[in-house]
Design a protein around this nucleic acid. Structure first.
Lengths: 120, 120
DNA sequence: TCTTCATATGAAGAAAACTTCATAAGTATT
DNA sequence: AATACTTATGAAGTTTTCTTCATATGAAGA
């Protein structure tokens, strides 16, 4: 039986204490996707349901659902039913810290108005 | 002409100011790799050259070199020649913040001694 | 400059992740 | 329970990224 990194993340999370590298790998593979990042960016502004996300991001609903799954499993977002809809919201505790670290990094290493120096 | 995400990261970095999502994507795709994370974890302890990294991580030298490249391009690590060798070091400013955010997240969401609750 | 040690690069097969389409499952209303 | 609406899932083809091997480049000493 084989598992994807998402599944391994989940399994590892349930079965054993993991090292920092493993934890990071689970989180970062989830974060390393433009659609998921776009979802997070939208949810940063306000919580919303799946079809609104699909509409706002101009993507198919199944695409959004597929991508919400790993985000929720990693607890980067939360969800809450509201009638037929499911409202997703950002885990700001975690994500604001991460966004800030990335922004700081970009500011430090892409000095001239957001452009990175040619780093080789 | 087509570009990998690493290359696009680089090009995007040089050519234009990018949104947070793009910046994140560049960084996170670089971070979403077990070998690269293992490298960062080692460099967190101490700076070292390529062959020492290869030895410590029990990986081929070419594997290490291939993986150092995107890390350096993203400025997550620095390098400095020393004779024949090239010493790589961690960008602690950025990486300690990120490691801390991940550790905090794991503590909050994997309560019982590092195990995550079954988040479905 | 020849040799040796250290690191980097190219390319190709292998593996992993993504996108899409079709459809299933959950919820509420009638 | 039939319908409509919302969200989730499965599977297959496509694309992206990884790993490995062979080899090239760079640095230093004889």
């Amino acid at each position: 039986m084989k598992f994807s990194s998402y599944e391994e993340d989940f399994i590892g999370c349930v079965l054993m204490k993991r090292g920092l590298t493993d934890t990071c790998y689970g989180l970062f593979s989830t974060l390393a996707n433009p659609t998921r990042l776009a979802i997070l960016e939208k949810l940063r502004i306000q919580s919303m349901n799946v079809s609104t996300l699909a509409q706002v991001l101009n993507q198919e609903q199944s695409m959004i659902s597929h991508n919400l799954k790993p985000l929720e499993r990693c607890a980067l977002i939360y969800s809450e039913r509201s009638g037929k809809e499911k409202i997703y919201s950002l885990n700001k505790d975690t994500m604001e810290k991460i966004f800030k670290a990335v922004e700081d990094h970009a500011n430090n290493h892409c000095p001239f108005g957001g452009m990175c120096a040619d780093s080789k």
